[in-house]
Simulated scan of single mutants.
Amino acid sequence: MSTVDYVITHELAHLKHLDHSQAFWDTLEMLYPEYEKQKECLRLNGRKLNI
């Protein structure tokens, strides 16, 4: 999956949890088990993206 997939999945998880609680992260992990890798990539390179 890509960083775009991570962002979309992150937002989908917000449909169930409107915060960044542990329940939110658990849901995100269920939807995208390797989300932490893309989260870190976005943190490091997010300012370089042209959207």
Rank of each mutant, 00 (worst) to 15 (best):
M1D: 14
M1Q: 10
M1A: 15
M1V: 12
S2A: 12
T3M: 09
T3V: 13
V4F: 11
V4C: 06
V4M: 13
D5R: 06
D5W: 06
Y6Q: 00
Y6M: 10
Y6E: 03
V7W: 01
V7I: 15
I8W: 00
T9E: 04
H10P: 05
H10A: 10
H10I: 07
E11R: 10
E11W: 03
E11K: 11
E11D: 14
L12G: 06
L12K: 15
L12C: 09
L12D: 13
A13I: 01
A13N: 00
A13M: 02
A13D: 00
A13R: 02
H14W: 01
H14R: 05
H14G: 01
H14N: 04
L15R: 12
L15F: 13
L15G: 09
K16H: 09
K16N: 12
K16C: 09
H17S: 04
H17Y: 10
H17L: 05
H17D: 03
H17I: 07
L18F: 11
L18W: 10
D19G: 08
D19C: 07
D19R: 06
D19A: 09
D19T: 10
H20Y: 09
S21A: 08
S21I: 06
Q22I: 07
Q22T: 12
Q22E: 15
A23T: 11
A23V: 06
A23L: 14
A23S: 13
A23P: 06
A23N: 14
F24T: 03
F24E: 01
W25Q: 03
W25A: 02
W25H: 07
W25T: 02
W25D: 02
W25C: 01
D26Q: 11
D26I: 05
T27W: 00
T27A: 13
T27G: 02
T27E: 13
L28P: 00
E29S: 06
E29I: 00
M30G: 08
L31P: 02
L31C: 06
L31E: 06
Y32E: 04
Y32F: 15
Y32R: 04
Y32Q: 08
Y32W: 02
E34D: 15
E34N: 15
E34R: 08
E34M: 11
Y35V: 05
Y35A: 03
Y35D: 02
Y35H: 12
E36K: 10
E36R: 14
E36Q: 14
E36V: 08
Q38I: 04
Q38N: 09
Q38W: 10
Q38C: 06
Q38P: 01
E40M: 14
E40V: 14
E40G: 01
E40Y: 09
C41R: 10
C41S: 10
C41K: 11
C41F: 13
L42M: 08
L42A: 13
L42G: 03
L42N: 03
R43Q: 10
R43M: 08
L44V: 07
L44P: 01
L44S: 10
N45R: 12
G46Y: 05
G46W: 05
G46H: 03
G46M: 06
G46C: 07
K48C: 08
K48Y: 08
K48V: 07
K48A: 11
L49P: 03
L49F: 14
L49W: 13
N50I: 12
N50P: 04
N50K: 14
I51Q: 09
I51L: 15
